[in-house]
Structure formats: C-alpha cells, structure tokens
C-alpha cells in the first residue's frame, strides 16, 4: 500500500504532464477522482454486504458493512474537499452546484444517516439489520437521486463551465491515475480489515465481560 502511494504520488506530482487546458491544477485529479470512485465503491460494498447479511444472516457481512462506513465517509469528505480545492482555480469559486459535486454531497448525507443508525440502536443485532435495510433503501435511491440531480443541473447550468473530468484522459495521465486508484483500494482493504478485526475483538470483549459479570 505504502509503495503504491509512493509511486502514485511521485508520478502524480512530478512525472505526469500538466494539462493543456487546466495546467498544473490537474494534479488534484489524481487524488480527487480516486476519492470519489472509492466513495461510490464503498457504498456499493456496504449495500452488497447488507444484502448478504439480510439474506444469509452472515455476521461477517455486518461487520464488513459497519467497518466500511467510516472509511467511505472519509473518502466522500475528501472528494468534496479536493473537489472544492480544484474548483476554486477552475471555476473561480470554492463551491459550484455542479451535478457531480452535488451528488457526492448527497452521498455524504447517506453515509451520515447510515452511521447514525448504527450508533442510535444499542443492540448490535438489531442495529445491524436496521442499518442493512437502510443501506439497501439508500442504494436503490442512489441512481434516482443522481439522475434527478443531473436533471436539475442541466436545467440551471450555464453552458460554458469546464467539467472536472476533462473529455478525454491522455495515457500519460491515465497511468498515475490508475496507480493512485490502486493505492486507494489497497488502503481501503487494509483499514477495512483492521476495523473488522477490531469489531470482532470488541464483540469478544463484550462476551468476556458478560461472562465475568455472571461469574462474579
């Protein structure tokens, strides 16, 4: 993971060329785009894990979904912040109600709701199933929300706005981008495993404490 990041950053900041239209600012893309992709991918993973947990009641699926959520929230927040830092030089404003940014913002709220319901229900079994239902409902809504936001932005958009994802990506930019995506994925898997392990240990701890309380 560290190696992928090192190579990715080296390529992104040093060897990759500046874009002819966006100049050096295109370098933000190498962290913005992976963050945004991972934000969506993580939500998909949570939804799939929730489906598995509802159908097969597999406890590891619950743990995976729960553990992935804060990581996904972090990716979503980073996509918003880097998007804003990229938007300032490109659009002249810190925030533009562009369809993509707006959808990512909504995704951020979906993550918040998902995490909130985990925290609001004390009983872990109930929380996991309620959260799973919510994740699936949210997942069904993601394409609808995305479509509606795009619809809304075409109604309000002045035509001449540079879009954040240039029309075509040159090969010299694609390689560093892919390396960074790989690094983000490796990061996600590593942290996900740590957090799942922690959740497992937390449950074990609960059992131990319960045993001790009953024994005493």
């Amino acid at each position: 993971m560290a190696a992928a990041f090192a190579v990715g950053i080296y390529m992104a900041l040093i060897t990759s060329p500046a874009d002819f239209k966006q100049g050096e600012s295109v370098r933000i893309m190498y962290i913005h785009v992976p963050s945004a992709w991972m934000a969506l991918l993580t939500y998909t993973i949570i939804a799939v894990a929730s489906g598995v947990s509802i159908i097969w009641r597999h406890p590891l699926a619950d743990l995976a979904a729960k553990s992935a959520a804060p990581v996904g929230l972090a990716f979503t927040g980073l996509a918003l912040i880097t998007g804003s830092l990229w938007g300032k030089p490109m659009w002249g404003d810190w925030w533009v109600w562009d369809a993509r940014l707006t959808s990512v913002l909504v995704l951020f709220f979906l993550y918040l709701g998902y995490i909130a319901i985990w925290q609001a229900i004390e009983d872990q079994n109930q929380a996991s199933r309620a959260a799973a239902i919510l994740a699936l409902v949210g997942f069904v809504n993601v394409p609808i929300i995305k479509f509606s936001v795009e619809w809304w932005s075409t109604l309000h958009q002045p035509a001449s706005v540079i879009r954040l994802d240039g029309p075509t990506i040159d090969g010299s930019m694609l390689v560093p981008l892919l390396v960074m995506v790989l690094a983000f994925k490796a990061y996600f898997i590593t942290v996900l495993l740590w957090r799942m392990k922690a959740e497992l240990v937390a449950r074990k701890l609960q059992v131990l404490r319960l045993k001790k309380a009953q024994g005493a």
Partner: peptide, 27 residues
C-alpha cells in the same frame, strides 16, 4: 419504521429520510 423503538427518533428520521426526498423536490 427504522426508528420506531427509539425514544428520540425525530432528528434521526430527518437525517435518514431527507436525502431520499431530493428527487421529489427536484422534479
């Protein structure tokens, strides 16, 4: 339904549900 067992579910309902209201609002 998700917050039915919670004593103070009101705020949570808003957080859970408002993002899902967006398409209706837009159209």
């Amino acid at each position: 339904a998700l917050t039915v067992a919670m004593r103070r579910g009101g705020v949570l309902v808003s957080i859970l549900v408002l993002p899902l209201f967006i398409p209706t609002l837009i159209f």
